[in-house]
């Protein structure tokens, strides 16, 4: 799958940008995030014979590797003497913090994948706290249409999250 340049390009095109955002959010530095994505792909190639597509999606597998790369990278940064550390007081990134960002990145990706109408309904009601009647009025549609979009939007989000490897979405 990463066995030739075309395979690496395909995997990068599918997941590279999302891996980059994940690493950037945890490492806080573009250069470090790029290095981490590169290291993720190199480790993935080295472990390619252990990858079983029947057990995990390529995305799940790459993110599992990226998670370890980021934890390793943040350990190295945290162990630098304070004089050399120019990026403030970087604590070693805990697994909890990594998993929170992993979830956030996954959700943000999934939100981009569902239909625009469904995303709009979820954004306005779940994140902006508006009522479905209010959103319906603004769109010039019925309250029941907006509510229906919420139902199918949440369902689509759940399916997308599951396809991305989340098993604990109800």
């Amino acid at each position: 799958m990463l066995g030739d340049d075309a395979g690496v390009r395909a995997a990068y095109d599918a997941h590279g940008a999302e891996l980059y955002r994940f690493c950037l959010r945890l490492l806080g530095d573009r250069g470090a995030a790029e290095d981490a994505v590169q290291e993720t792909f190199v480790r993935a190639w080295r472990a390619a014979d252990r990858y079983d597509p029947a057990r995990a999606s390529l995305r799940t597998w790459l993110f599992a590797i990226a998670r370890n790369v980021v934890i390793d990278a943040s350990r190295v940064r945290a162990s630098r003497p304070p004089v050399a550390a120019q990026d403030g007081d970087h604590e070693p990134t805990t697994q909890d913090a990594v998993d929170r960002v992993l979830l956030a990145c996954g959700l943000e990706t999934a939100l981009r994948e569902i239909s625009t109408d469904q995303r709009h309904a979820i954004m306005e009601i779940a994140y902006r706290g508006r009522t479905s009647a209010d959103v319906a009025r603004e769109l010039g549609t019925s309250d029941s249409t907006v509510r229906s979009r919420l139902f199918y939007g949440l369902k689509a989000l759940r399916t997308t999250m599951q396809q991305m490897g989340w098993t604990d979405v109800g």
Binding site: R100, L103, A104, L107, E108, L111, I122, M123, A126, Y127, F151, L154, K155, L157, R158, M161, D168, V169, G170
Partner: peptide, 15 residues
């Protein structure tokens, strides 16, 4: 149940 579990995760993201 499924949608409640899904909705409970939403605050983790900054959309």
């Amino acid at each position: 149940e499924h949608l409640r579990a899904m909705a409970a995760l939403l605050p983790a993201a900054d959309p």
